[in-house]
Design a protein around this nucleic acid. Structure first.
Lengths: 350, 350
DNA sequence: CCCGATGTTGCACAGCTGTGCAAGGACCCG
DNA sequence: CGGGTCCTTGCACAGCTGTGCAACATCGGG
């Protein structure tokens, strides 16, 4: 009798639980399957034995039988930076709530390792893949389609797959009009050479709307869409003879770089000398050092719609791909309106 | 013959590849197993057929047989915030490089869902679990031990499991001595009521060293260890009659809150009126708005040692748990030394 | 008391892979 | 040409679970 082996090494199987509970292995399986036909007392016996042995249903075998697992892949480059970090956190929380297990595939690794990780998504029969950024190799998209694995993209419209996006054009156009409504006509754009679809949309819509309304608009782009990129763009914009009176930044990190360069390198005041608008509304935007006016994206809302996509796709795999477009609402803070009251009256140093 | 079904639905199995390649199923399995005994031409035939059909080895079956998988769980609360975001990114990259698939279990979910997610780690026979923060329920630790699943903790010494930590005490003591060496004797500590082990170590070591050296040191704690918490602590520290001349903050986010409160709410200059030291050296610390002196933790270095722990533990499961202790080096910036040259000469606004 | 219905349980199979074992073939050396 | 050795290949089994199907028990009603 192997009743006394405590499972010190290896895992406990349903067979061992069945022996200890004095029932068949099927009964154990049914006890752990909601809605299966088991008597209450049998289930009770099984559960007690399972608890004593520390039994966990083997999801590998379960998934092998069902030919699908509860894993979901999240593909992202630099998942620790800016808005994306919040998106990843919201998505993992939502997926766990749904009963899934979210993978995080960090695209920063080498190409070979990355491909291996993506292949593993199929190897483990992942329920779906969610693409946050970075373009997956075409072979990956092809494989997903072939194996019937749902592919959901966020912020970029991969052809033929569900996606949820924010209305970048509308927000960027609104930014241009906001500046003009305040009488600011020399406009600047702080963009990025990284060329993400969202970034490009924001850049083009802002420039287009500004020029359509007869304003002057110059663009400067840093290497990446981060703080350093914002400083690089600012270095160009503020060195011009007719420096812009207002700058729209394609995300908040860039805006922080622009603001800091304006203040600490060019001695400009924000918003008196230059107004600044960002995008994303990450928590840092409300810090006293910045008080940045920006367009809010709600990570939780995006996560909710992503999970809804997932539910719909699994329910009807053949349905046509659909798109959810969310609106980014403007949040005004001190970087645009000089009249905004400071959070508390300033005291002078001794 | 089912040679022509393109696998439009469902996944391709090794059996189908074998038929197409005209070999046995074992040959397919061996072709995908490094070091197995296969002739080059057979492997070639198999690989061609596999590529044509889009075959992926079923890792569920493979893991079922081996009774272990390539999955690794990362358990973290608020994985999007501060240093932890960088740690998560570094760990996922290192794990992918090692051939693992990193799960991200976001402890922010409800307890029931969290327990389900952690149970799934055993269900999928994860190779190991890495705990970044948040105390796992005792039942989880017990289960891990029972099933022989390695448990690695970062920053907190879970009894009986490998861990890697930074020498918080040494750094905090160094901070106290640094202030005193500059002639600053009224010291403040900005801590947090969250009570994370690392935080507590930093708090106690700083206070202890300061008092040991005869300095006056007062502590103030915000609710959480983030920006808002720093502001709350500052509200207490700077309202005192003998406000501190220098504040040690248990992490950088708290330091930003303290600095902003000092400047924008109390009109104090940093470092002339109050010197500030943080902890972590996240990228924001080098931004022009803060230029924060702080203790550097290198996420990549921590990730390397974590993976090394993992390798060692899997090689010899019975070995005694070991600890790696890293040193946090001080990085001096403008928040402590007023003599530090500003990044570029300031220009006055018009 | 007997019959039907309902609920419960066990058997056996499917799902896919890795690998020990034995058999077969090729090759080399004497 | 013969024998031995090594490489390669196919067979069959193990690993763990979910579930259809048939058998069994239990219970209620006539």
């Amino acid at each position: 009798m192997s009743l006394t082996d405590d499972g010190v090494r290896g895992f406990v199987s349903a067979q061992q639980v069945a022996e200890r509970a004095g029932v068949s292995r099927s009964a154990v399986s049914r006890a752990f399957t909601p809605g299966a036909s088991v008597s209450p007392e049998t289930r009770e016996k099984v559960m007690r034995a399972a608890a004593e042995l520390g039994y966990q249903v083997n999801d590998l075998a379960r998934g092998l039988l069902a030919n699908r697992s509860r894993l979901v892949g999240l593909v992202a480059t630099r998942p620790e930076v800016g808005f994306r970090a919040h998106l990843v956190a919201a998505l993992t929380a939502a997926l766990i709530r749904r009963g899934n297990l979210p993978f995080l595939i960090n695209t920063g690794s080498s190409t070979a390792e990355l491909e291996a990780a993506q292949a593993a998504l199929f190897g483990y029969r992942a329920e779906a893949t969610i693409i946050l950024s970075g373009s997956p190799p075409a072979s990956f998209v092809e494989l997903a389609r072939r194996n019937g694995q749902p592919l959901i993209s966020i912020g970029r419209s991969e052809p033929g797959c569900d996606h949820v996006k924010v209305d970048n054009e509308a927000a960027a156009r609104e930014a241009a009009r906001l500046f003009l409504a305040r009488g600011l006509t020399r406009l600047g754009l702080a963009g990025s050479a990284s060329g993400t679809p969202s970034i490009v949309e924001r850049e083009q819509a802002f420039l287009d709307e500004a020029r359509r309304l007869g304003a002057q608009a110059v663009a400067a782009r840093g290497a990446d869409s981060d703080y350093a990129g914002g400083q690089q763009a600012a270095q160009v914009l503020f060195a011009m003879v007719d420096r812009p009176q207002a700058v729209f930044c394609v995300n908040d990190l860039i805006a922080f770089g622009v603001m800091d360069a304006a203040r600490h390198r060019f001695g400009l005041r924000v918003p008196e000398d230059v107004a600044v608008i960002g995008f994303d509304d990450i928590p840092e935007a409300s810090w006293d050092a910045y008080r940045l006016s920006t367009f809010r994206q709600d990570p939780a809302e995006i996560a909710v719609h992503t999970v809804a996509h997932l539910d719909r796709r699994l329910a009807s795999p053949g349905a046509a791909p659909s798109t959810v477009r969310l609106r980014a609402v403007f949040v005004e803070r001190a970087s645009t309106s000089s009249s905004t009251t400071s959070s508390s009256p300033r005291q002078t140093a001794e």
